[in-house]
């Protein structure tokens, strides 16, 4: 199962730029393709594509979204166990253990690079205790604007 690129592709290279595994490939101004064995179904290619040229694994057209509208992780530190599953799940490497909480001496997860977040939601999906929710974040919006 993998995402696919359709004839609508103009070869703008945005998907290749955002793909965290190098699965989306192609030369500029030519139709791109996704290497199925590398695709992890994060959906970044579909979200970023300005030409609606990407199909999800079920054959549905992926919907393009402005980067500032991508939903990104917010952590409920009352539920979080600091187990590191979300940090490990992140394909973009934009999560990391934050500075230690002074009272509990615990490093809770932190979205350290909001601009790099792909909004894939793997962190929320894999969190065993539902401590991660996906929301439009003001800091991520600012990072997207700056980018």
């Amino acid at each position: 199962m993998a995402y696919q690129i359709t004839d609508n592709c103009t070869g703008c290279t945005l998907c290749a730029h955002f793909c965290p595994t190098g699965a989306a490939r192609g030369v500029k101004k030519a139709r791109h393709a996704i290497a199925a064995q590398l695709c992890i179904e994060c959906g970044a290619c579909g979200r970023i594509c300005p030409h609606n040229a990407v199909q999800d694994p079920f054959g549905r057209m992926a919907k393009s979204e402005k980067k500032k509208d991508w939903k990104k992780p917010v952590f409920d530190l009352g539920l979080c166990m600091a187990c590191g599953i979300c940090v490990d799940a992140c394909p973009a490497g934009c999560l990391e253990p934050g500075p230690p909480d002074p009272k509990r001496k615990t490093a809770y997860p932190l979205l350290s690079d909001p601009g790099a977040c792909l909004g894939c939601g793997f962190c929320a999906r894999e969190c065993p205790v539902e401590a991660v929710s996906l929301e439009i974040r003001a800091d991520a919006e600012a990072a997207a604007g700056a980018a």
Binding site: M81, C83, K105, A107
Partner: peptide, 13 residues
């Protein structure tokens, strides 16, 4: 201790 260390998927630390 400066910070607790949790192995991957460990809620205890």
């Amino acid at each position: 201790e400066t910070v607790k260390f949790h192995c991957y998927s460990c809620p205890l630390g």
